[in-house]
Design a protein around this nucleic acid. Sequence first.
DNA 1: CCTTTCATGAGAATGATTCTCATGAAGTTT
DNA 2: AAACTTCATGAGAATCATTCTCATGAAAGG
Lengths: 147, 147
Amino acid sequence: MAHDTTHAAFGTGRVTAQRRRISAAAAAMPGAFTVEALTEAVRRSTLHAQDASAATATVYRAVAAMEATGFLARIGSRDGSALYAHCTTPAHHHHVVCDDCGRIASTPCPLEVLDTTPAASQGFVITRHEVTLYGLCATCAEQRSGS
Amino acid sequence: MAHDTTHAAFGTGRVTAQRRRISAAAAAMPGAFTVEALTEAVRRSTLHAQDASAATATVYRAVAAMEATGFLARIGSRDGSALYAHCTTPAHHHHVVCDDCGRIASTPCPLEVLDTTPAASQGFVITRHEVTLYGLCATCAEQRSGS
DNA sequence: CCTTTCATGAGAATGATTCTCATGAAGTTT
DNA sequence: AAACTTCATGAGAATCATTCTCATGAAAGG
């Protein structure tokens, strides 16, 4: 319900009503989500039937744009679909994803120090890296131990 | 050209001529590869035209089996296709992938110590993680700086 | 040797993601 | 604020990696 994060989401890209809805829905997602789930959320958020609900291709394009600005991060994939999450900080970080409910948390980059050390020893120059942790969030871990 | 790594590759699975070719081709791959590239390699390795060259589905199934035994690791994806690499050691490790030529190297897990610390502080119980570094191998880095 | 189980091939089927193209709106220029 | 250029949109077709189906043959085991 913040005022307008659209420019933060799309950078120099154009601001449209559709994109406002999409970025708002993405920011409101409780955890990691697929493009399909985001599309459904956008359609649900369209209260008035008069509004055309977002086309699949439009959401894919908006997601790509938001990933480019760092507003969203591609977390990995589940069952063949890409998973995304809204990044609240622009600083370099990684994610912890709950295997049960998809809730996410941020975690600092464990490679910040080692970045060049182990790999460079084999002649590699590291330009980027992907780190994602999977597990159970507090809620889901408790439910499992309780059953 | 080692004798027979088939059992290492497929574990308790069945040993067939086709699987022998596939695991041999996978082990002979110079770096990270797609299933499509592996399929081509298998077909190329089939010297005698009499032999049926591997069906796509068969290679996919073999790759899945080899991934299950740890003979192969899914490295990530490039252009929509999954990337795999042959693991020479069964010990837990990660990979460095050359963005240019796909050459790979092993790197120890940087999370081994931190594993539970940063994430657990947010209530998460970590069960697994994915770490892949990307960059340039010595050869490709040199070529770039030389041009 | 018999039996059961599982790998194979060929092609169809699935499913996520991208592309095409005509249209309308956004941001920019006088 | 009228005129322009550029880019976002929608709808559906198209692409492309991966999986499934099903009949057949071979592997491992008793």
